[in-house]
């Protein structure tokens, strides 16, 4: 048998925040537990039955007492709520300069891609001191990406992207667990996060056998799936141009506007009929089954590489013939 650890490592910028909140909660919990235990022990001994004929006098319910012991715990609980919500708020807002990593979970492995093109399975190499943002989806059932030393966890759900982020603060090797039960080898869907010095990370990135960046792979996929037959870069194809699409506001045929983010592009590839760009026909076939989740994120990176948002994507006049729906 190994050692007896009692407290997990603190290896991300969130970890100290979460642990400080834990100390507050522990203090409240210990105070009430000990208080109640001691009171019960004291009463049990002080007022033990001495004769079988005893009848205690009636003690009136004290309204003040009832209010006091409702309001004080409520106040303490509201501190917990606010403090916890503020940490949660930060956990939901990755900084803009975070290193993007794409994660695909499947029974029973983690597949990770760096935009530089490095691909890993059940291992993730990241530099210390820089925020990392994960964009995650699953090929099959729900998984959950959990790094105890970072105090972060987010479910990885098929059919959508979830994101989480963290800033590692200490170089080292940390457990990655799947925390949502996913079948036979759930407990073997584990891996390691390697937090490296920036220089080591650069060496690692350069040293691998990556076949071009994710955007390059995306471009190859774009060509092999013949997406360019319709999506002409000049906007004259039967489908909207993808240049400058990423991050822009897209006007839809139903009059709504949607932000062209990862989820939007993913949905447009797999369920093209769900949201039709204004002025275009719903002619695009679904690529469900033709492209893997890893391929989809490569395509997204390729679309991203086509430039930052320009003017809103709308139809060119000659294409507005028969608006769909």
């Amino acid at each position: 048998m190994g050692p007896l650890p009692l407290f997990p490592q603190e290896a991300s910028s969130f970890a100290p925040d979460v642990d400080h909140l834990l100390y507050y909660l522990l203090a409240v919990a210990v105070f009430f537990t000990v208080g109640i235990f001691l009171t019960i022990f004291y009463f049990a001994i002080r007022y033990r039955r001495r004769s079988d004929k005893e009848l205690p006098r009636f003690v009136h319910t004290g309204m003040t007492l009832e209010i006091v012991w409702s309001v004080i715990p409520f106040g303490l609980a509201m501190v917990m709520f606010t403090w916890g919500a503020s940490i949660f708020f930060n956990e939901g807002r990755p900084p803009a300069d975070a290193i993007p990593i794409y994660v695909v979970g499947k029974q029973w492995m983690w597949k990770l891609q760096h935009i530089e093109g490095q691909r890993e399975i059940d291992e993730l190499h990241i530099p210390v001191g820089r925020p990392v943002r994960l964009t995650m989806t699953s090929e099959d059932v729900i998984h959950s990406f959990y790094v105890p030393a970072f105090r972060t966890k987010e479910d990885v759900v098929p059919g959508r992207y979830s994101t989480t982020w963290f800033t590692p603060t200490k170089p080292g090797k940390y457990h990655l667990f799947c925390a949502e039960y996913c079948g036979t080898n759930h407990s073997r869907m584990i891996g390691w996060i390697y937090v490296m010095q920036p220089q080591d990370y650069q060496n690692w990135l350069n040293g691998g056998s990556a076949s071009g960046s994710m955007a390059d792979s995306g471009q190859k996929l774009f060509q092999s799936l013949a997406c360019g037959n319709c999506h002409h870069p000049d906007g004259r194809g039967r489908c909207p141009s993808l240049v400058g699409l990423y991050g822009s506001d897209v006007l839809l045929s139903n009059g709504a506007t949607v932000k062209a983010d990862d989820s939007y592009i993913r949905e447009s590839i797999l369920q093209p009929d769900a949201q039709i760009v204004a002025g275009y026909q719903p002619i695009m076939p679904t690529f469900q089954g033709l492209v893997t989740e890893e391929g989809v994120v490569q395509l997204i990176e390729y679309v991203k590489s086509l430039g930052k948002p320009g003017p809103p994507v709308t139809a060119t006049p000659q294409q507005v013939t028969a608006p769909h729906r």
Partner: peptide, 25 residues
């Protein structure tokens, strides 16, 4: 009372967003 108190108070930990992210599941 003893066990329910501990169970209930640790429920406060789980209701707390920042802590729950770490300890849920």
């Amino acid at each position: 009372i003893g066990l329910f108190t501990i169970g209930g108070l640790t429920g406060l930990f789980l209701a707390c967003l920042g802590i729950d992210v770490h300890v849920t599941d």
